[in-house]
């Protein structure tokens, strides 16, 4: 990796990256748990994944170890695959109940 970027990442202390990631992760997790609109839920799942990407990139730069950033690529790939399946499930749901509201899915008691 370009040494300039590593230096730039390191100018911010590691704690700040960790706190920002936790904040983003918390927003994402709360969104999945609380929001009713399934498309927002899908976006919140992406937010959770991306907060981890940020954290991995920061750790990677601070450890001077490229493996963390390689993992980020894998996560992006998996997130793309997940969102593909997730969106098609949403389309299926829209076709059946004509709505994207989570509360419409309540026929299985639980």
């Amino acid at each position: 990796m370009d040494q300039g970027i590593i230096t730039a990442i390191r100018t911010v202390p590691l704690d700040h990256y960790v706190l920002l990631s936790f904040l983003l992760f918390g927003i994402g997790a709360a969104g999945v748990a609380l929001r009713r609109n399934t498309i927002i839920v899908l976006m919140c799942i992406e937010l959770m994944f991306n907060s981890v990407n940020l954290l991995l990139a920061a750790f990677s730069a601070h450890h001077s170890d490229p493996r963390g950033q390689v993992f980020v690529f894998f996560i992006m790939l998996v997130a793309a695959a997940e969102v593909t399946v997730g969106l098609s499930i949403l389309v299926m749901m829209k076709r059946i109940v004509d709505s994207v509201d989570v509360n419409q899915l309540n026929r299985l008691k639980g």
């Binding site: 990631s21 399934t38 799942i45 959770m48 994944f49 981890v52 997940e82 299926m92 899915l105 026929r107």
Partner: peptide
């Protein structure tokens, strides 16, 4: 029922993956 199961499994699974990744 199958559609509901798919959606619930997807959200639960992705949510779990998020925690695992963190």
């Amino acid at each position: 029922r199958s559609g509901e199961a798919a959606f619930k499994y997807f959200v639960q699974g992705s949510f779990a993956s998020g925690f695992l990744l963190m």
